[in-house]
Amino acid sequence: MSSRLLTVSTSPHLLGRATIRSRHLETMLALLPAVGFGVYYFGGPGLMVILLATASAVAAEYLAQRLTKQPVTVGDLHAALMGLLMGLVLPAGAPWWLPVVGGALAVVVGKLFFGGMGGYPMNPVLVAWVALALSWPEQMNAFYQPLSSEWYVSETPLMMLKDDPSTLEVVTRSELWWGLVPGAIGATATWPLVLGGLYLVIRRIVPWQIPLGVLLGAAGMALLAAYTDPTLGELGYETFAQQWSIVTFHLGAGGLMIAAFFLAPEPVTSPVTPWGMFLFGLGVGFMTVIVRTWGAPVDGAFYGVLVMNAATPLLDRIRPKVLGKIEGTA
């Protein structure tokens, strides 16, 4: 008995089953419905963009870490998840090199430059997305009309909204929420994103405060816009049901839902405290609708996430109340 050595360590001696890898794997599983819809809607081009972005992100992480003699962390699936998200926020009509550059940028500039997992200040996928959107606006707006026999570039509902508020009445909500309008591969269909997002919330991989904050913030801001914006006033909306239709438009359009459930709750760049998370989400929601209604860019969801990422250290200062702490003592 004495010859067998026993392990000694601090408590706890039980650990939960969650690991970094399992989180990323489950997030990818939750994205599967969105990927399925994207591939169904956009066919070969859509699938190609997703695959190229994922492959590029994984390859970039492997090469960069080998080159800098760091431990290779491809196995934790973070690069694969980032590449998948990158592909989903790109348009199906993007040339082949756009997802390749995007995936590599996300991993190398967005993540590894800042010290890898746990170190980066802003969502690396969106950092890469902004870089692409500013550098190649034409290619980044090559949105295809889904389910068409011949692919052609078309305007998204949000682009049309910029010029003409009556878009709110032209696009039916069921088209919008099922993604039968031009848009990014994975972001245009809203229902599959909601499905995957709810799974993550139930699994507690995504804290419920962030998506709730985003949705409430966007809804609140959309209502505010309905009351105050003169161009929307021309539509003559009087009843609450009519004004609510603006809310359902904003929630279903563009990248809001993928931001709410997948990009904003990115763990490293979002706050950790309950109220901080909620305010972070509210901020993302506000920014989205502000940019869409009054700003120059077409969609504000991704910019909103990046701006609120910068506010994360501030929001982390909103701490929960410590049980049993008496004020004025340490």
Partner: peptide, 16 residues
């Protein structure tokens, strides 16, 4: 491993 800032510990901590 480095902390990934996910906030699970904050949600779990019984004393806040």
């Amino acid at each position: 491993q480095p902390c990934i800032h996910c906030g699970r510990c904050v949600a779990a901590c019984p004393v806040g």
